[in-house]
Simulated assay, not measured.
Amino acid sequence: MDDDGHPVPPRWHAPQPADAILRTARAVLRAVATLTGETDLAGAARDLTSAESALRGAEHLVLQRLGHGEGTAAAQLAAALPQVGTTLTAIRDLRLEARAATLTGVQHALGRLRSVTSLRDLTTQIPVEINRLGYRRALLSRVSGPQWSARAAFAHDDPQLARDLVEVGSSLPGQIGRELPETEVVRKRLPVLVEDAQHTPRVHHRLINLARTKDYVVAPLVGRGEVVGLLHADQHAERPSVDDFDQRLLGLFAEGVGCVFERVVFLEQLGALRSRLQEQTRSVGDLIDGFLGSDVLAAPVAPADPLSRLEGPLAELTRRELDVLRLLVRGRTNTEIAAELFVSPGTVKTHVKHVLRKLGVANRAEATSRYHALIRR
């Protein structure tokens, strides 16, 4: 990490065994050139890939000359042939070893990504991890509908290029159906190798020209059953170009990133749900605190009984007779009054007689009229 907490990518240096093998290859090629009279074969060995190609040419040349030579020259050529073969085998072994180490690097890269807990950090870290796998430049794009637009990039020793790639790739998004490599990746959900990108039609030429890309690999980032992003990589740190191995490698890495993406999305959704629940809990708590702090739960004040404040005939009625009068005024029958007061109909009949007598009325209708007249006073 740097002082700002950002991951610092490794600086790429060819391992010492590769340097030693390259020196051996050049020495063998110079020896073959001397024996065959050819011009400097070693000059074509700029790196391991070109050295391998030059050694194969030298091997073919030696076999050709052996078919026509004899004597000391033939013996010298025959002695050079095993040296060519041994050096070719060393290059192949080193390449296999490097590829095996790269596959292990994919596991380590995915392990680091699994510790990320936010989509924002994951977006930033993915191009860095692609660089750690051995690619000098990487681009992560978001697929939304028919468009794919850049979200994060990494360019070894050229942070300005990384920023420019994101700016161009977001302001001028690619179109599914317009750029054929990305269209094929989205539709088939498989990685694609693009060779000679500068002369390939229907690619994103603004990005290609900006980065001066010769060839690149693009792989799908699949989440929840849909292609949600694209991973681009080019300029391998130890080879002049990317090939079908890089195509398979980036595809494998993209599959793992898809699983990490789903996990991070789940964690963010879970965190958002937890926040909403906590907010709701706080809101309910505030509501209860306010409710308990108010006078809402104070004992209700019973409304004044108008009959309890009256004098005259109503004041002569007993508590039970007042209850019977209230129900009688509401139109209840003796049976209904008995059920409501939990007494017998006979008891109610007796109470009604006492009420009529004390109010000085002859029947229930007069009792009702007398009641209303008395409480309006």
Rank of each mutant, 00 (worst) to 15 (best):
Met1Ala: 05
Pro7Ile: 05
Gln16Met: 08
Asp19Trp: 09
Ala27Lys: 11
Leu35Phe: 09
Thr36Ser: 13
Leu41Ala: 02
Ala42Thr: 07
Gly43Phe: 03
Asp47Phe: 04
Asp47Pro: 08
Leu48Lys: 03
Ser50Val: 01
Arg56Met: 09
Glu59Ile: 02
Val62Thr: 10
Leu63Cys: 03
Leu66Glu: 02
His68Cys: 01
Ala78Phe: 13
Pro82Tyr: 05
Val84Tyr: 04
Val84Leu: 12
Val84Glu: 00
Thr87Asn: 04
Leu88Gly: 02
Thr89Ser: 13
Ile91Gln: 09
Arg92Cys: 05
Ala100Leu: 13
Ala100Ile: 13
Ala100Met: 09
Gln107Lys: 15
Ala109Lys: 07
Leu110Ser: 11
Ser115Cys: 06
Gln125His: 13
Ile126Gln: 09
Leu133Tyr: 08
Arg137Leu: 04
Leu139Gly: 10
Ser144Arg: 15
Gln147Phe: 14
Trp148Cys: 06
Ala155Leu: 12
Ala155Asn: 07
His156Ala: 15
His156Thr: 14
Asp157Pro: 00
Asp158Arg: 15
Asp158Asn: 15
Pro159Asp: 09
Gln160Pro: 00
Ala162Met: 09
Ala162Lys: 03
Ala162Trp: 01
Asp164Ile: 06
Val168Leu: 11
Ser171Ile: 01
Gln175Lys: 03
Leu180Phe: 11
Leu180Ile: 14
Glu182Gln: 11
Glu184Phe: 15
Glu184His: 11
Arg187Asp: 13
Arg189Ala: 15
Glu195Tyr: 04
Asp196Met: 10
Asp196Ile: 06
Val203Ile: 08
His204Asn: 11
His205Met: 06
Arg206Asp: 13
Leu210Glu: 01
Leu210Cys: 02
Thr213Ser: 09
Asp215Met: 04
Val218Thr: 03
Val218Ile: 10
Val227Arg: 07
Asp234Arg: 09
Asp234Thr: 04
Asp234Ala: 02
Gln235Tyr: 12
Val242Asp: 08
Leu249Trp: 09
Leu249Cys: 11
Phe253Glu: 12
Gly256Leu: 11
Gly256Glu: 07
Val257Ile: 15
Cys259Ala: 10
Phe261Glu: 04
Val264Glu: 08
Leu267Cys: 07
Gly271Tyr: 07
Arg274Phe: 13
Arg276Gln: 14
Leu277Gln: 13
Arg282Leu: 12
Arg282Asp: 12
Gly290Val: 06
Asp295Gln: 13
Asp295Phe: 04
Leu297Cys: 07
Ala298Lys: 12
Pro300Ser: 11
Ala304Met: 12
Leu307Tyr: 04
Glu311Tyr: 05
Gly312Glu: 06
Arg319Leu: 11
Arg319Lys: 05
Glu321Trp: 03
Val324Cys: 03
Leu327Asn: 13
Gly331Val: 05
Glu336Ala: 12
Ala338Leu: 07
Ala338Phe: 07
Leu341Met: 14
Ser344Asp: 03
Val348Ile: 11
Thr350His: 01
Lys353Arg: 07
Leu356Arg: 02
Lys358Val: 00
Ala365Asp: 02
Ala373Leu: 14
Arg377Asp: 14
